[in-house]
């Protein structure tokens, strides 16, 4: 067991956690933040992407005990984020999800793409999305949504 103090969606948390518990399980089972979705649990699918100190990471590959002092933002923590509001609207408009399982991770990656690569073209968006798997949409709607937010921001 390790004592860990971290901030999750702006809330300070201090807990004793078993060392083997990864951040995804901690968020879901200890904090009831079930918006972070676990699928492959070995870093391939991207469904569990959350922000750690502002940048996307795989929650399944991040030990909770290693999060001392970290700021975590999950899909539940973006209510006041203007960019995430734009992305949500664009995902809705372009049908960027069907079942929604990959969506929290997609949005974490999408936000990073828009912030880090404001000039990204379609090829670059698709390349950056290679680490997030979606089994419903064929990616067309997701790519279209991200491209629209990029275009709107460039306008």
């Amino acid at each position: 067991m390790s004592g860990v103090s971290l901030t999750v969606n702006g809330r300070k948390i201090a807990r004793e956690v078993a060392d083997r518990v990864h951040l995804g399980d901690f968020l879901r089972e200890e904090l009831n933040l079930t918006g972070t979705h676990l699928a492959c649990e070995h870093g391939v699918c991207g469904a569990c992407n959350v922000l750690l100190n502002g940048v996307p990471v795989r929650a399944c590959l991040q030990l909770t005990a290693a999060c001392e002092g970290a700021e975590i933002t999950t899909i539940e923590g973006h209510d006041d984020d203007a960019l995430m509001a734009e992305l949500r609207a664009a995902f809705t408009r372009h049908h960027g999800l069907q079942c929604g399982y990959c969506t929290p991770g997609m949005l974490a990656t999408a936000r990073d793409i828009v912030l880090r690569l404001p000039d990204a073209d379609e090829d670059r968006v698709r390349l950056e999305l290679a680490g997030n798997l979606c089994r419903c949409t064929g990616y067309q709607g997701i790519v279209a949504a991200i491209r629209q937010v990029l275009a709107d921001r460039r306008a």
Partner: peptide, 9 residues
Amino acid sequence: IAYRAVRNR
């Protein structure tokens, strides 16, 4: 290398 979320760590 891999994907940005992996490269961040």
